[in-house]
Computed example of a mutant assay.
Amino acid sequence: QEILQDLYQRGVKEVLLGVFDGLNGLEEAFKSVFPKADVQRCVVHKVRNTLNKVRKKDQIEVAEDLKLIYRATTKEAAIQAFREFEKKWSKKYAREVQSWEKDLDVLLTFMKYPLSIRSVIYTTNAIERTIKDIRKRLKTMNSLSSIEAAEKITYLTIQDYNEKWSNRKLRGFSNAYQALQEMFEERY
């Protein structure tokens, strides 16, 4: 919450969406700082966690059934796909199905957004890749002289990403631009 409040104080005032991996307290902290923003739980994390609790022989079938939920084109279709998933798997994997039911709204938040960007916003994979690259960069430097040295490497790595990303067009966002503008205007 402190980091989010710091971002707010430094000028990040209008946020449409926060995407989180389900870490306890993170979504609540985000909503306390950005109450008008939507919260999206990372679907990839949820699928991964579910499949880890499913028998090996059922994993492919369960994964395919879950895809029908998060790849549906409308929220109604996604809910219908979940109901089918629930009927099929609730006897065998009651806890996992209940967990999906409990989190379904926050897992399907991305359905409010334009179709062209949904596959980008239902996961935290881009953030995780960045963190993985920073760790990889720090790990090769066997010993850093201080915390400041590690911070400098992290800063330079992020600056490198900023440079790459500032010229990069994210797939689908140009098509979604107008709809996102309208969402901002409506909300803020």
Rank of each mutant, 00 (worst) to 15 (best):
Glu27Thr: 14
Trp100Ala: 00
Glu185Trp: 01
Leu144Arg: 00
Arg168Cys: 02
Leu144Asp: 03
Ala149Thr: 10
Lys57Met: 10
Lys56Asn: 15
Ser143Ala: 09
Tyr113Lys: 07
Ile117Asn: 06
Leu16Lys: 09
Leu7Arg: 15
Ala94Asp: 12
Ala29Glu: 15
Arg48Asn: 12
Lys112Val: 02
Thr154Asn: 02
Asp38Trp: 07
Arg41Ala: 06
Thr50Glu: 11
Tyr155Trp: 13
Met111Lys: 11
Ser99Asp: 11
Lys53Asn: 15
Asn167Leu: 09
Phe85Gly: 10
Tyr93Cys: 04
Ala63Ile: 08
Leu107Asn: 08
Arg135Asn: 04
Gln159Ser: 03
Tyr177Ile: 08
Gln98Arg: 05
Leu115Cys: 05
Val106Trp: 11
Val62Asn: 04
Arg55Cys: 08
Tyr113Leu: 06
Gly11Phe: 12
Val39Tyr: 02
Gln178Ala: 03
Leu115His: 11
Ala77Asp: 13
Asp133Tyr: 09
Leu66Val: 11
Tyr93Ile: 01
Ile127Asp: 00
Met141Trp: 00
Glu76Arg: 14
Asp6Trp: 15
Lys57Trp: 04
Tyr70Val: 07
Ser174Glu: 13
Val39Leu: 09
Thr157Gln: 12
Arg83Ser: 14
Asp38Glu: 11
Thr157Asn: 14
Ile117Thr: 06
Arg168Tyr: 07
Lys36Leu: 14
Phe82Gln: 07
His45Glu: 13
Thr123Asn: 12
Lys91Cys: 12
Ala94Ser: 13
Leu17Phe: 00
Val19Asp: 06
Met141Tyr: 02
